[in-house]
């Protein structure tokens, strides 16, 4: 019987990586990024990658790893402000960049995975985002056409997964991961915890295993970008708890 379960990130990417491939990588900032699969993609040596990801990691972590090694040719992102090397490569003309509004990016990925080649949105009307895009009027308002996005490989981070690839995400680490799981020709997932099929209540599965071809359990560093805490001297629950 074929199995979706692989032992390591390197094994899970075996035979999937190639030059000029398009990769989707989940996460918002460093939250919910497939750390181990990104490192394995770097080690695969694939060049001229088009990376679709909301952000570009930070210097030396997340997708920042693949920028350092110049393996990324083009990024499709909504916000890349946390990465100095990215800014340097872009301003020097060494890197292509396509900015998408965050909601447009999320919807393009959702549409790509759902078999919808294009859709209309009012986001970006009257801005540089609209340049060269077909427009249509609905109820007297102007909308621009955006296209669906797909990838050769989607790299996804989930909290728990079972051996059939059914997934649950944790808190705000969910973000772009569920849509990206649907939009990859092959979707590879790393989870904090891999469990036997049947462990989940089917009512509480976020992503059904049909979208997942390969899965590994791997330990993540889960680096925090902007640690913000409140004074432990303040009484607990003194601010709104509802």
């Amino acid at each position: 019987m074929s199995s979706k379960v692989f032992k390591t990130a390197a094994e899970a990417l075996q035979g999937l990586t190639f030059d000029s491939m398009t990769v989707m990588s989940g996460g918002f900032g460093l939250c919910g990024i497939p750390e181990n699969l990104i490192a394995a993609l770097r080690d695969s040596g694939a060049q001229n990658i088009t990376a679709i990801s909301n952000n570009a990691g930070v210097d030396g972590f997340g997708l920042g790893l693949l920028l350092e090694t110049r393996q990324i040719k083009k990024m499709i992102s909504s916000y890349v402000g946390e990465n100095k090397e990215f800014e340097r490569q872009f301003l020097a003309g060494e890197l292509d960049l396509e900015f998408n509004p965050q909601g447009t990016l999320a919807e393009r990925i959702r549409a790509g995975g759902a078999g919808i080649p294009g859709f209309y949105t009012k986001t970006g009307v009257g801005t540089v985002i609209a340049e060269g895009k077909p427009t249509m009027e609905f109820d007297g308002e102007e909308y621009i056409m955006e296209t669906g996005l797909k990838a050769d490989v989607s790299l996804v981070k989930a909290w728990r997964g079972d051996t059939q690839g059914n997934l649950q995400f944790k808190k705000t680490a969910r973000n772009f991961n569920p849509m990206m799981a649907t939009a990859g020709k092959v979707t590879v997932v790393e989870v904090d915890e891999l469990v036997e099929v049947g462990s989940f209540d089917p009512n509480y599965i976020h992503t059904p295993g049909i979208y997942v071809q390969r899965i590994i359990e791997a330990k993540c560093e889960k680096r925090i970008e902007n640690m913000t805490t409140r004074d432990p001297g303040l009484g607990r629950g003194e601010r709104g708890s509802a």
Binding site: S77, S78, Y79, V80, G81, F86, E87, F90, L91, L97, F99, P101, Q102, G103, T104, T121, K122, T123, G124, V125, T127, I129
Partner: peptide
């Protein structure tokens, strides 16, 4: 332009919707 390359994040969607 030419100075700051950060991106719009969700701002364009927010003001549109």
């Amino acid at each position: 332009p030419g100075k700051m390359v950060k991106g719009m994040g969700g701002a364009m969607d927010l003001v549109a919707g």
